[in-house]
Design a protein around this nucleic acid. Structure first.
Lengths: 344, 344
DNA sequence: CTGTTAGCGCCTTCAA
DNA sequence: TTGAAGGCGCTAACAG
């Protein structure tokens, strides 16, 4: 059973055909210098004997791995899995493989993972940084060594490389404006960490929408998550609703948080959307399965993955293209039952 | 900005220190032959000058990539993402990276992807085959070349290698038995394709549970999905409920199908679980977010990923270990509202 | 203890 | 149009 025959090499072909290794090498690439008959001869022999070039040798010779690294905070996460899917699709179509790993939102893990990858396993890195990542020394070293990096979704300005994000400000602005258009007046926001950029952008979008509608803003209406969990959604909603002047709508940083919020509201018998309106963010699958279904903002993760990968491959193929533009993808407001007070 | 300094090599260190390349190489590995002072000298120099071995060269030399391939039908899929997460965790802990791709349940894509990976990009492959995969020529070739493969979840017997699955029969048996214990008498099953093994195993488990309880079995109670989609869940449930003698419980091949089923039942005003009981399979996140929450069977994807990876790494490290055992992981019945007719 | 030599498989000048 | 030779960076067998 253990055939384990040694793989055919150029040398073998050369010997068999009475040619030199270099001729065989060139013939297989149909180099113009080589005689047509030789090319055919070699190609036929190679094919018949199932010659497969030794990738390890080729890559070593070219100093290329033809792999891209991809680091996300969490893999078991609807949004990130769509990004991964898009990245893989684009990479594969250009002959690259994707090497995936997760940081679990820990800086230490992210640091180690990026080192392992960039120390020779990949030609470039796609990364969405962890919640703990506020500096970027662990990545800047590689950047200046010439290893290209592209950031997406959760980004930091301390790393000057191309970035692909969603228009978090605009998405939050639209979501809040939609709530306002449905007649909600006291709109609360359960936000994410203050040191995470997209959480801040969403918060700013929320604020701006209120201001533009001449609605009051108040710190009492804003709660700040750290883990972005269902539990936080539940307990912050409790805090909001049990307060002196409870809100009539809640905009949550994420669908998961909104689900926690929904749970509390339903338990306490609030009518949604009539008494309290609710919006999430990210368009996870769960936003379609709750009752009522959850209004949200689609972040187009698949496109984000494709776009980030495209940029990274450009950088890899054209080394002296030294971009650090931020690509901002449009979000899409998805209105479902949890915020549709004005029927029809 | 473009520093792009050439990386330090062993040769550079050797020259700088007036040693030979091989001495430097061995010193860095603390080879017992080398004098302690030399080792320290070399190590210090290497550290001070940030020497990093050229992975491409090392791997070429060792004919190893230290990468594992992982192919799943779909990445944006709760269960598979948990498997991926487990696989990555185990692989990373043993110094391997995971290269992920998806087949989209297409044999052609799966074939191409496995070829690309096994032609030198990875040292072994973890694969959950597509719905279209009924033979395994595209994989057997590599197996006999000595490239180890481990199958998980969706497997085929045409490929003799280790396999890791969940006890689909037992899981379905328990699920059905649970429905029976809740007093349901006419239990329907919306199953998957007849040429997919785990779909068949679940079907058999369902049948056996009915038989063991002396309940009638009938083809009228069994519907057969092909895409395993929400839409199929919806329409097959319609077909079942609009039939002559509708069931009083439905066991679905997957949570997604069960969600489609739930949608139909709620639309038509059936009381769940009182009039109709419902069970899914796989414990997706959505099974916690529906109303009522969905009873289901947990497949422990994370453990499956870890276990499959462990086996693959054993095979890689011990080439003449020629196992083809099937590891069967226990499932876990998760009882939620959709099947809890007997309160308390 | 250390150095010399050879080679992994492929590509690419340079020379014929 | 083809071949010979050298080298990518590292490892390991063999000498000394």
């Amino acid at each position: 059973m253990m055939t384990e025959k040694r793989k055919l090499t150029l040398k073998d072909i050369a010997k068999a055909l009475g040619l030199s290794v270099s001729t065989v090498s060139r013939a297989l690439k149909a180099h113009p210098d080589i005689a047509k008959e030789t090319i055919e001869l070699v190609k036929k022999y190679a094919e018949d004997n199932h010659y497969v070039p030794n990738l390890l040798a080729v890559n070593f010779r070219k100093s290329r791995t033809y792999n891209l690294g991809l680091i996300v905070p969490e893999i078991v996460h609807h949004f990130f899995s769509t990004v991964i899917s898009g990245a893989i699709s684009e990479a594969n179509s250009q002959g690259y493989n994707i090497l995936v790993t997760q940081s679990n939102d820990l800086l230490e893990v992210e640091t180690k993972a990026s080192q392992i990858m960039l120390n020779g396993s990949v030609d470039g890195l796609l990364i969405s940084i962890s919640n703990e990542t506020t500096t970027a020394e662990h990545l800047n070293a590689y950047l200046s060594e010439g290893k290209p990096i592209v950031q997406f979704d959760k980004i930091t300005d301390h790393l000057s490389c191309p970035k692909v994000i969603v228009d978090d400000f605009e998405g939050a602005y639209q979501a809040t404006t939609h709530l306002i258009s449905q007649g909600y007046k006291r709109i609360a926001h359960i936000r994410g960490r203050k040191d995470v950029k997209n959480a801040c952008d969403r918060y700013e979008g929320y604020l701006q929408a209120l201001r533009d509608a001449n609605l009051p803003t108040s710190d009492d209406l804003v709660m700040c998550c750290s883990a972005i969990s269902e539990e936080e959604g539940y307990s912050f909603t409790a805090e909001l609703m049990e307060g002196r002047t409870p809100p009539d709508a809640i905009f949550c940083i994420t669908d998961l948080v909104a689900f926690g919020s929904l749970k509390y509201l339903k338990e306490k018998g609030y009518a949604i959307p009539d008494q309290v309106g609710l919006m999430g963010f990210s368009n996870w699958m769960i936003s379609e399965t709750t009752t009522p279904t959850l209004s949200t903002v689609n972040q187009h993760g698949y496109e984000m993955g494709r776009e980030a990968t495209k940029l990274l491959l450009q950088l890899i193929k054209d080394q002296n293209l030294n971009s650090e533009d931020t690509t901002i993808l449009k979000t899409e407001l998805i209105i479902r039952e949890s915020s549709m007070r004005q029927k029809g």
